[in-house]
Simulated scan of single mutants.
Amino acid sequence: MQPVYLSHFIDSATPIYGGASGEINIEQIRSIDKGDTSNNLLLKFPAHIGTHIDFPYHFSNDGKKCNDYPPSFWIFDKIGFLNCTIDLVEANLDVLPSDIEILILKTGYGAYRNDEIYWSSQPVIPSRFATIFKNKFSKLRIFGFDLISLTSKLDREEGKLAHINFLINNDILVLEDMNLENVNKIPKTVIVSPLQINAADGVPCNVIAF
Rank of each mutant, 00 (worst) to 15 (best):
V183H: 03
F129H: 05
D201C: 10
S149H: 05
P46T: 06
A199K: 04
I102Q: 04
I104C: 08
F133D: 11
K44F: 06
E176I: 01
E90C: 11
D94T: 15
R141S: 15
N184F: 13
S72P: 00
I172R: 14
E157A: 07
K44R: 05
I104K: 04
F143K: 02
N40Y: 03
V89M: 01
I208H: 06
F133Y: 11
A20I: 07
N83G: 00
K185M: 14
E181D: 15
L173I: 10
N182C: 12
L96R: 04
D68V: 04
M1D: 07
I191E: 15
R141W: 06
N179W: 02
G144H: 09
S72A: 11
N92H: 07
D146L: 08
P46I: 09
I168E: 08
L43H: 05
T131V: 08
N198F: 12
I32K: 12
E90D: 14
E90V: 12
D155N: 14
V4P: 00
G144Y: 09
L180N: 02
S7V: 11
T151C: 02
A162Q: 01
V203W: 00
D201Y: 07
L173T: 01
D115N: 10
P56S: 08
L180F: 03
I26Y: 02
D146S: 05
L147M: 13
G108D: 04
N206K: 04
H163A: 15
I53C: 01
V203C: 05
L161K: 11
P123D: 09
P3T: 15
F45V: 08
F73Y: 11
S98H: 11
Q122N: 13
I168T: 15
T37G: 04
L180C: 08
K136N: 14
S21P: 00
I75L: 11
K65C: 07
P194F: 06
K106S: 05
Y17C: 00
N170P: 06
